[in-house]
Amino acid sequence: MEFSVNHPIIFVMVAVIILAVLGQSVFFLIRAIKRAKEKGMEMAKIKSTIISAAIFTIAPAISILVGVVALSKSLGIALPWLRLSVIGSLSYESIAAERALEALGLGTDITITAPEAFVTVAWVMTLGILIGLILTPILTKKIQSGMKTLEKKDKRWREIFQDAMFMGMISAFLGFVFCDVTLAFKGDFTGFIPVLVFFASAIVMAVLGILSKKNGFKWLKDYALPISLIVGMALAIPITSWLG
């Protein structure tokens, strides 16, 4: 069969895998909603979780789409579509594709024409991300059981432990936001762009949080994070043109 990065057969295979992944999400969603009903959880709460999760996802999903477009120059559309829909994250997939293309003596801006090069890149990208897929089914139950044991021993510590994990993750990203501020000593103020975006988003979130406690504005609570995300991203445009 004559090869092309956008050959219909590749699209068909990718579509089948993505449908399977979609099937898994729908399966777990239905299962969780059923369980929520059994437990007598408020359906209004479930509905609001669904709506706000969907709205919150739009902007990050579009940024993932930007990654598909970036990788499509060399790899066609189907492979980046698969890699960024299943397991992949933009930072990982871009690096994996670049390393594989480098090893082949190719660049990310030239479309692959040789099937040998394409399958090599596909294998590197696939094998690189397999660890999570192999170990999650094996380890998840064990890790969760460990957390349950911790809870049985000391419930209060278990809750603090969970908060500490969340806080640890947020602290790492807070540090990351500030990682380039020292460039200012060299007269380059671009390192302050993420810092200003971070604070803009934080201020919007704080204001929305206060407003949502007032009567008539309670609905804002459901949309506070997506609004702060979008406002932060939108403000990145003038901030970048100011400091960039």
Binding site: P60, A164, V177, I193, P194, A206, L229, A236, I239
Partner: peptide
């Protein structure tokens, strides 16, 4: 382009303010 580039700071600004305000001592 700058909007997509600043997704993480915009995301963690909002998320950070909620969690830090709830766990100030721990933060």
């Amino acid at each position: 382009e700058p909007a997509f580039k600043q997704l993480i700071p915009a995301l963690f600004g909002g998320l950070g303010v909620v969690f830090v305000s709830k766990n100030v001592k721990l933060a």
